[in-house]
Design a protein around this nucleic acid. Structure first.
Length: 204
DNA sequence: TTTACGATGGGCT
DNA sequence: GCCCATCGTAAAC
């Protein structure tokens, strides 16, 4: 296992999604270190993608996604959760991959303490907001450089995932662009199995 | 087991 | 003012 190189991440988000499956993201803070192997991701292509936060151009919130690849884009959602993306493409071009689920491979006890509601270890990072909770990724990590060994959040290559083992389907909770299968996962009990693309919430 | 819904707040039109 | 790249709990079957 080694740190990724930035140029390996400066690719189209759909390709980056395949690169990231099996990769290991690791966070270190005052409490200790937690590492997790990514098993489910979603590509957001940027300006061309109606579901992307960058679809309507650059804003203060999404500016990290327009910068160089290999940085973390963290955003606040539903009034109480955070989600993390890995930025791809070249500087000046928006695009990122949402981290949806992972298997905790290091610091399991710390992750359990942070995720009291999880009844099985498979649930520790089973979902995008659970993942940030287990790894304690927050707004202070927005823009963090994942290829810097001194960064609080780092990204390592894991065991390579054979292309034949990658499954694809519609993105979750996304009403726009439902026709593109830009959610990718590998067979794992930690993959989130929530409602498929369509409405984020049932209409009242 | 499966489904329903409330909590909660920032971003953008 | 409406829309969310969600989760945990409770209720229904």
């Amino acid at each position: 296992m080694r740190l990724f190189k930035r140029e390996e991440l400066a690719v189209d988000p759909v390709d980056l999604a395949h690169v990231l499956l099996g990769a290991v993201i690791e966070t270190t803070g005052p409490e200790g270190t937690v590492a997790a192997r990514l098993v489910e991701v979603e590509a957001y292509r940027g300006q061309d993608d109606p579901a992307s936060h960058c679809y309507r151009g650059q804003t203060p919130r999404n500016e990290v996604m327009w910068g160089p690849a290999g940085h973390l884009y963290v955003y606040f959602v539903y009034g109480m959760h955070f989600c993390a993306n890995i930025v791809g493409r070249e500087e000046g071009e928006a695009g990122a991959v949402l981290l949806r689920a992972a298997e905790v491979v290091e610091g399991v006890d710390l992750a359990r303490a942070r995720r009291k509601a999880a009844r099985r270890d498979d649930e520790l990072a089973q979902g995008p907001a659970r993942l940030t909770s287990a790894l304690r990724i927050g707004p202070e990590h927005n823009g963090a450089d994942l290829v810097n060994p001194d960064s609080p959040v780092r990204l390592f290559t894991g065991d390579e995932v054979p292309a034949a083992d990658v499954r694809a389907g519609p993105r979750v909770g996304v009403a726009a662009a439902m026709d593109v299968p830009w959610r990718f996962w590998v067979d794992s009990p930690a993959v989130s199995v929530y409602r498929r693309g369509g409405r984020a919430r049932p209409r009242k």
